[in-house]
Design a protein around this nucleic acid. Structure first.
Lengths: 110, 110
DNA sequence: CAAGCATATGAGTATATGCGCATATAAATT
DNA sequence: AATTTATATGCGCATATACTCATATGCTTG
């Protein structure tokens, strides 16, 4: 399989879609929270400070993109990170951003 | 520096913004084209099949995100990939996507 | 300085998407 | 079966952004 083959339009749209899923602060916050492990919706609502409706929608988006797994247990639904490449993606972007402005680096983590 | 520190809201917005820049097929096409090396706008217009105005706008977006460098030489403006992490980012996403649907894998590269 | 070429940008339109509110669904408990 | 609890979803609004067309800017050359 050639490594440098150009991508088809369809493939580019898939890649773009994947980046788009990661292009929302609340979804990133959810992912970051789930880095600690599986959680149900209510826990995620409390951890992120978002509304239940909004959190639920974002979880749906992330799940449809196959980034999260969904497990129902009684009344509760547990979500977890399903795609380990998410970790590396976030690390890459964060690293690149930190280099980019070492000035505001203090406003980066708390 | 702590590796697992949670990100501030401001940092999350920066990360999200970066992903958003990568969330457009035409911009990905431009980046992919520039993988071969520095190019001027006209060459990019021809290579991507986009309109001059649209290509110019996307180049501006990519440059403002510090993903591309801009070099003016006479009438022409040359763009090049400025942030090497872009390569790894695209590889990661493509790899993850290929795994995800090995079915349509044939529609991925040409 | 006029004309021409390469690139950038303002304006307008269409589409997408995030959010809040209210309500629906689904499962457990009484 | 009715009620309660946890999660999902329909709807409307507001905003963002991609695209096209026309035009502006900037540099070069005659």
């Amino acid at each position: 399989m050639a490594k440098k083959a150009p991508l088809t339009d369809a493939a580019l749209e898939h890649v773009a879609r994947r980046f788009a899923v990661l292009a929302e602060p609340m979804r990133l916050r959810l992912l970051q929270t789930l880095f600690a492990g599986e959680m149900n919706v209510n826990a995620l609502v409390e951890a992120t400070g978002g509304t239940q409706a909004n959190v639920s929608r974002h979880l749906q988006t992330l799940t449809q993109a196959h980034m999260l797994s969904r497990r129902k247990e009684g009344l509760q639904v547990f979500y977890a990170i399903a795609d380990p490449s998410i970790f590396k993606l976030c690390e890459l972007v964060c690293g690149s951003l930190e280099k980019q402005f070492t000035k505001h680096a203090d406003s980066f983590s708390r």
